[in-house]
């Protein structure tokens, strides 16, 4: 998986950053939930993805934290309604 920052350097606009980030998050979902078929969009909610429950959510959070080298606050973890909001939160941390 290419590091996001390198990708950001190559991309010139915000849309492309989001696109690259989504691609990487999609990879994390596939790896963590062990399911090659997963395709996430910004509008994807937990109920749209098999096995994305409150337990696996923790695994996803930990994997995303490791990948982007960030840490979420505990109230952030519980408050995302969809993947897009999760990405907003990641971007707020300077990514």
């Amino acid at each position: 998986m290419p590091k996001l920052k390198q990708a950001i350097l190559k991309s010139r606009n915000r849309g492309m950053i989001r696109e690259e980030m989504l691609k990487q998050i999609n990879e994390i979902f596939i790896d963590t939930l062990d399911n090659e078929d997963i395709v996430v969009e910004e509008s994807t909610k937990a109920e749209d993805v098999d096995d994305w429950d409150s337990l696996t959510h923790i695994l996803l959070v930990v994997a995303i934290e490791k990948h982007f080298k960030i840490s979420f606050k505990s109230n952030e973890i519980q408050n995302w309604n969809d993947v897009g909001e999760m990405m907003d939160c990641i971007q707020e941390k300077g990514i």
């Binding site: 409150s54 923790i58 695994l59 930990v62 979420f72 606050k73 505990s74 973890i77 519980q78």
Partner: peptide, 15 residues
């Protein structure tokens, strides 16, 4: 991992 403990009642980190 305190954030995980607070949000899930789990006391052992994934690592």
């Amino acid at each position: 991992q305190p954030s995980m403990y607070v949000s899930t009642e789990m006391v052992l980190s994934i690592d």
